[in-house]
Design a protein around this nucleic acid. Sequence first.
DNA 1: TTAAGTGCAAATTATTTGCAGTAAG
DNA 2: CTTACTGCAAATAATTTGCACTTAA
Lengths: 138, 138
Amino acid sequence: MTTPILPCEADWLTQAGLRPTKQRMALALLLVGDGQHRHITAESLFASVRKSGNSVSLATVYNTLKVFCRAGLLREITVNGAKSYFDTNISNHPHFFWEDTEELSDAPAEDLEISHLPTAPDGAEIAKVDVVIRLRKA
Amino acid sequence: MTTPILPCEADWLTQAGLRPTKQRMALALLLVGDGQHRHITAESLFASVRKSGNSVSLATVYNTLKVFCRAGLLREITVNGAKSYFDTNISNHPHFFWEDTEELSDAPAEDLEISHLPTAPDGAEIAKVDVVIRLRKA
DNA sequence: TTAAGTGCAAATTATTTGCAGTAAG
DNA sequence: CTTACTGCAAATAATTTGCACTTAA
């Protein structure tokens, strides 16, 4: 009998042209297993996977996050000098960054309207627009 | 007779409550000496100061940039996973980030209109809003 | 079988820090 | 004087890489 592979995560990977290895499946389950969007860092995902009982090395977590980004499965958010965040919601939308806890969350996109962006200078095109609203305790 | 201290940089420092030391004066001259706005990194400023003939250690460049930020003389821009940029223009304005050269420059602010921002969640206030328009060669 | 994926430990990059010496008020 | 500032070298944090081993197709 075939191994009971969870279909959702396997599809998420294969549809992006990635091999559904044991490690990638474990990470995918934590990222998109319940259909909710998440904002994670390499370290936080590493902690989650350890807690879930699976074993994936930290280097592989880093490398896999990069691979997922290149495959268009995740979006990297650059928010803080040091560490990188990854968002399972790959649409262009603004973020809240909580300066005290260093947590990242979605900001309600409907409330943000950029009337018109500066036009890209000659010979350049806009790759993406990052909007980060930094919050601190009032 | 008093030492001929360059007035502009000395004022920039003293008005922010900072001692105009030799090193800070050398850095201030490079940052705001000609009244132009600049986007620099610790390493690039370190290179400039060496080229100018002055000697300031890299650690001091890093520490001084932090001090200048806390004093409100510079604004730190978080744009790339790894390194920090500092802007002598402390007003809130959007930036272009050139992905190929990793250079940061001002985007024409008049062209950007954020109609209305998301309201800060309860117990929080907006510290600042970073808008980074990432450009790649077309 | 065989190219892609993984784990470890060592390497890198950007930045910070401890501490002894130097200088500004 | 005495407290803040500076320089150096070592420490740290996040991430990447080299390379031998495994595994999915």
